[in-house]
């Protein structure tokens, strides 16, 4: 097998190709695409924008990857993001001193704690009651937005709190805070699951829950942990999204973000059937989605058409990764080999 064929058979091949193609399109449409400038000690540029705007999706996608690796799915992340944003904003608004660091710390902590409870609830439905994950999390997806509206009393809560706003649009050492948070979440997940046996346990639960239980893996505890972690990721993303606009909108915070996150995971080559997962793939997938959105802007296509392009990318990636395509391709290669073999024999 040639080096190229080996590369092409890698799970990361098509997503990376997709990303490079998108980069190339951007470079043609906007020659300064790769330029990164330093202004007031802060980094600016298209690539930085992609990283910064893609951070919430990436954070959720990391949690989603682990859930999907256990053959699950979490549809409730958008609702959890909305709830955490609503909780944080309503605490900040209700405090006598919205601008103080302590208030924001309390608000963020409470929001994250509540997300842990929501994650445990999802884990309980899946691990203890044994409900299919797609349905179990559908409940929170439907009811969660209602709960978020209950917290905000149906209004858009606008807060004026510099420390909170810093979470969404601040910089540290020139790098946007959102990117740093995403990097930390990604690094933690990678370290925890790839430097310990945890990742292998998660994969074993995804391949065969019963067999892994009999082999001594505590599948139930693992499922709880994975759904809780996913909800925590969703809450972090929700806080970043809310802080970015300094407003909690129960209806629109994190709308469709569950779909973007699942897409990122699928584009990254993690199968929805559970088992093998790739966090690097998810990173590439999240970047592909965000770059796609940016491309739509730079190329000058009306941004409203973004969803059509997303549909196209999903379809193409899914068809390329489909076993039917792989079979057809390998059959084609075999036929080519046979034909060239015949050619050699004839000469």
């Amino acid at each position: 097998m040639s080096a190229l064929a080996k590369m092409a058979s890698s799970r990361l091949f098509w997503p990376v190709v997709m990303l490079l193609v998108l980069f190339a399109i951007n470079l043609v449409a906007f020659p300064g695409f790769f330029e990164i400038t330093v202004r007031d000690g802060q980094l600016f540029g298209s690539l930085i924008d992609i990283l910064r705007n893609g951070a919430p999706t990436l954070i959720i996608a990391v949690g989603m990857t682990l859930v999907i690796a256990t053959r699950g799915i979490d549809l409730s992340v958008g609702a959890v993001a909305a709830i955490s944003g609503a909780v944080a904003c309503s605490i900040i608004l209700g405090s006598p001193d919205p601008g103080s660091l302590a208030t924001v710390a309390v608000a963020v902590t409470v929001a994250l704690l509540i997300s842990l409870v929501l994650g445990v609830w999802n884990g309980f439905l899946v691990a203890v009651l044994g409900i299919q994950p797609i349905i179990a999390t559908l409940i929170l997806m439907t009811a969660g937005r209602g709960v978020a509206m209950l917290i905000t009393e149906g209004q858009i809560l606008t807060v004026n709190s510099p420390p909170f706003k810093f979470l969404g649009s601040g910089f540290w050492l020139g790098v946007p805070i959102a990117v740093i948070i995403a990097a930390v979440v990604f690094g933690l997940a990678a370290l925890l699951t790839r430097r310990t046996a945890l990742g292998m346990f998660i994969e074993s639960v995804g391949i065969n829950p019963e067999a892994s239980r009999q082999a001594g893996v505590r599948a139930r505890g693992l499922l709880f942990a994975v759904y809780t972690f996913c909800a925590l990721c969703a809450a972090i993303a929700g806080l970043i999204l809310t802080a970015n606009t300094a407003a909690a909108d129960a209806n629109n915070t994190g709308l469709f973000i569950e779909l973007d996150a699942i897409l990122a995971v699928v584009i990254g080559g993690t199968s929805l059937a559970g088992g093998r997962y790739s966090l690097v793939g998810t990173l590439v997938g999240a970047l592909v989605i965000q770059t796609l959105v940016t491309t739509v802007y730079t190329v000058g296509i009306p941004p409203i058409a973004t969803m059509v392009f997303k549909a196209a990318v999903v379809t193409i990636v899914c068809l390329l990764q489909s076993p039917t395509t792989a079979e057809a391709l390998s059959g084609f290669r075999r036929r080519l080999a046979v034909r060239s073999g015949k050619g050699v024999a004839a000469s």
Partner: peptide
Amino acid sequence: FIATLAAMFLARG
């Protein structure tokens, strides 16, 4: 789930 999701994006777009 994924196929109908793509259709959803397409239709909405």
